[in-house]
Design a protein around this nucleic acid. Structure first.
Lengths: 342, 342
DNA sequence: CTGAAAGCGCTTACAG
DNA sequence: CTGAAAGCGCTTACAG
């Protein structure tokens, strides 16, 4: 395996210098070598097709220049939602801009210890914890850990770790408040997976907005979803069977709103004339549903990007970033909301 | 950075044995140590919270137990399509099942050399090339490389590298043939990004199916798309403005079909009564469009999974796998296709 | 400006 | 069964 790959030693021999010198010119250390030496070294590098071994370099420097992205292995994450892909893209951008590579660390629900092993085994300089579950032991672990971390796409209430996320409380509050101002008071909700902080926070914001409008929340209009299409569909079916049924339904992400839309169509109910619908995320597809979905936008790519940047800073400055970063949510008005008819 | 992390030396001291012995018990080498020794070592490991350093281990063994996933940084990949997320999930599964970690290697169109550097710098034992562009220098490079690789989600015509993908030629052929059998002959196509082999192959299959039905392809009914929503929308707008317009439109992926659906609705044209529509992928959302999308299913997760498995085998057996793996495509009939009316 | 040497934290023959 | 030693491919003071 990997036979015949040239090492720094062979470069040194070919250039007729020591390996220290090769290393120095590779690093461009000013004042450590003459121009002629550099020239010979670069020639040898080129002739041999030499590339520094990243592993050896990492061991010697005790820095790997790679960050880990830790993500739960489960529904609603990678495979069922563009959310994770977009965030990963942002993280990739932020990391590679600083010349870090990225490794995926997947945590299996039944075996978080394995993930911890991969975080602590020296193979990454830091990790971004992506949309972790509320009961994940990872966050408590990372608070004690020597390896730097930042939390992205979720804000555990009491953590000391730096977090970057959307202000979903404000976003959801605004959306529900707007519905109430339009005259809706029978407002149903299809919740996200409540193991996520985001889902819990969005429910709280919904309740707060109702209370502030002096509307008593009706438990019959509350459905526990899971952030995926099927959950949205089932949720809408359920809500549409309540009596009286809601005049508006808020979904805690757009994927569920798409599922809900299908169930609503199936019943022959018109959106927004007979029922209003609002989502959360502003996923790419949300402008393409019919009718186009009114939703709350969050900057998922930027969340990933900034999380990676904060992590890199933390790694390089050697101390923890003290502030959280909360992006504002933005209400995106399209065509699924209208005042109630009755 | 990472101060205070215990090393094998400290474990050895705590257990009162040599580091070789520690290493041997860690590896469980039969017959290399007494039960009592093992006991003392494990105690020390536990007390100190020792974890073997993965980098040091990699250097010593010249094996990193990590595979790279190389993916183009660009539209239509990660952020715009669930395709990549699902494939990544499959790769993750396949890799972690064999205790490999995975690193993302992103190739920037303007700088493929950088990606090659990350492949060849010893930080991965092998790579899966995910949905590479046809003109990517990566595949030619990997054919010469010492590092094992498998191509996933694309089949470059003449490569010696093992490939795993769907048989999209058969899938597309079947779909178009079916349309012709229903009586369609004005069949438009919204192509994928033609820099992908998949897009080219699907076009060929479309043409082949037309020819086999003695239908002359009309260049006016051919639109070059890009695998994303906007392209599908623009493509449908274009096709609906041709005279006469197609009675059926085939989209080279579901994401574009969703875009097309929107443009069609916007024009007040009914699907499938006035125009039939077929997609490709069977993305999760495709059962949720209205009407639900008829499409060609490909097993994206399994493509990723098997690609990773083949790669691991190649790494461990030390020799290249000789056969490609072509999953059958399956026509999924939902509600967007009907016989033409005229 | 240059190079010998120690060291990064492991593994792996090898000798005993 | 056990340990001293060499080695993996680099980097980094340090002496000259």
């Amino acid at each position: 395996m990997r036979r015949g790959v040239p090492t720094i030693r062979e470069v040194a021999e070919a250039a007729g210098v020591s390996i220290s010198t090769v290393s120095n010119v590779l690093y461009g250390k000013q004042g450590y070598y003459s121009p002629e030496t550099a020239e010979r070294v670069w020639q040898a590098v080129k002739n041999l097709g030499y590339r520094p071994n990243h592993i050896a370099r990492s061991l010697a420097r005790r820095r790997t220049f790679t960050v880990g992205v830790v993500v739960e292995q489960q529904l609603g994450n990678v495979s069922h939602n563009l959310y994770f892909g977009i965030m990963l893209d942002g993280i990739l951008q932020g990391a590679t801009d600083s010349d870090y590579q990225v490794k995926i660390i997947r945590v299996r629900p039944d075996n978080p210890e394995q993930a911890i092993g991969h975080i602590e085994d020296g193979s990454v300089d830091g990790v971004v914890l992506a949309a972790l579950l509320a009961d994940s032991p990872l966050i408590e672990h990372m608070e004690q850990s020597h390896v730097p971390s930042v939390v992205a796409g979720s804000i555990p209430p009491h953590t000391k770790l730096p977090c970057v996320d959307v202000d979903d409380t404000a976003g959801m509050y605004q959306a529900v408040k707007w519905l109430t101002q339009l005259g809706h008071w029978r407002i149903g909700i299809i919740l996200g997976d409540l193991r996520h902080w985001s889902a819990r926070r969005r429910e709280s914001a919904y309740l707060m907005a109702l209370r502030d409008a002096s509307i008593e929340p009706n438990p019959a209009w509350r459905y526990e979803g899971n952030y995926i299409l099927e959950g949205g569909e089932a949720g809408a079916r359920y809500l549409l069977n309540t009596h009286p049924r809601p005049t508006a339904i808020v979904c805690c992400n757009d994927t569920m709103a798409m599922g809900a839309l299908r169930a609503i169509h199936e019943r022959g109910i018109r959106v927004p004339e007979e029922v209003s619908l609002v989502g959360f995320d502003d996923a790419p597809a949300s402008a393409y549903t019919s009718p186009p979905l009114t939703t709350v936008r969050q900057p998922v790519f930027d969340i990933g990007l900034r999380a990676a940047e904060m992590l890199v800073q933390q790694i390089e400055r050697g101390k923890r970033c003290e502030h959280n970063l909360l992006f504002p949510a933005e209400l995106v008005v399209r065509n699924t909301v209208a005042p109630p008819r009755d």
